[in-house]
Amino acid sequence: MINKIILIFLIIIHLSSNALAEKDKLIISVASSLYKVSKELANEWEKNEKTKIIIIPGSTPLLARQIERGQRSEFIITANYYWLEWMLEKGLVEKDSILKIAKNSLVIISGINKPIYLDINSPEFKYDFIEQISSSMIAIPHPSSVPLGIYSKQALKSLDLWDSIEKKLVYTSSAQANLKFISQGEVNLGISYLSDAIFSSKVKILSQIDNKKFEYEQPIYWAAKVKNKNNDNYFLEWLIGDKAQNIFKNYGFEIISKKENN
């Protein structure tokens, strides 16, 4: 009898310890293009908070579907609003928690050893671009679902290139997979986020695609609280504070003004 009581007592202690451990960490699903900066953000957060951050990186559509299938996450950070709308429709995130947390830009890149030069402001740009892929291809993530692919298609249409090069496109699964594919020299050209390209020693930036001049939707990162989680929104508010925004800026992102979330 005493042994049974001791066993039950030990089980209760074990379960209580696990419950406390679960409360001491935040699991964040993060778009792959934010992986590097999210590690720095986590380090900064943990300096002053008791909760440890666990990062789950992946493409935005993959993360959204993982949460739909039951993957535990307290918060999700996506690379566009479309997938947050999808999650809202399925009741997976809390609408009132949604915030913009950072912005990005698109750049045309090539492998570091490719002898390629492109000037997006040149009258010959369209001809030069097509010439560079005449015997090669251009890589972008899939425009049917991956945010970088969606933005890239918009940009290529605005540059009046899409119809001319559509048959030359190679589709990849995510922003990070796309960057790696281009860096390996598998294609002559590709499109990347500025924040990814500037920290890669294996690619070079040929031209930045100004979204104001060429009228494509600027990449914006959104954060939201996953529904039915007990955590408050303090972490999300922290992401738009000065300390976190300066970290985003140091990693090549454009910061969000407080007015943009009002």
Rank of each mutant, 00 (worst) to 15 (best):
T51M: 01
T51F: 00
K52Y: 15
I53N: 04
I53C: 05
I54Q: 08
I54F: 05
I56R: 13
I56V: 01
P57S: 13
G58I: 07
G58S: 02
G58K: 13
S59P: 06
T60F: 10
T60Y: 15
P61T: 00
L63N: 12
A64P: 03
Q66E: 01
I67D: 00
I67Y: 00
I67R: 01
I67C: 01
I67T: 00
I67K: 00
E68D: 09
R69Q: 06
R69M: 11
G70I: 05
G70H: 05
Q71F: 01
Q71T: 03
R72A: 09
R72G: 15
R72W: 09
R72Y: 06
R72N: 07
S73N: 12
S73V: 03
S73A: 09
S73T: 14
S73H: 07
E74W: 05
E74K: 13
F75E: 05
F75D: 02
I76G: 14
I76H: 03
I76C: 04
I77P: 00
I77W: 02
A79C: 15
N80V: 12
N80S: 14
Y81P: 14
Y81S: 10
Y82I: 11
Y82V: 14
Y82S: 15
Y82Q: 14
Y82N: 15
W83S: 13
W83C: 15
L84P: 02
L84Q: 02
L84Y: 04
E85P: 02
E85N: 10
E85S: 02
W86M: 02
W86F: 10
W86P: 08
W86T: 12
M87P: 04
M87T: 07
M87Y: 08
M87K: 07
M87Q: 08
L88W: 07
L88P: 09
L88I: 01
L88G: 14
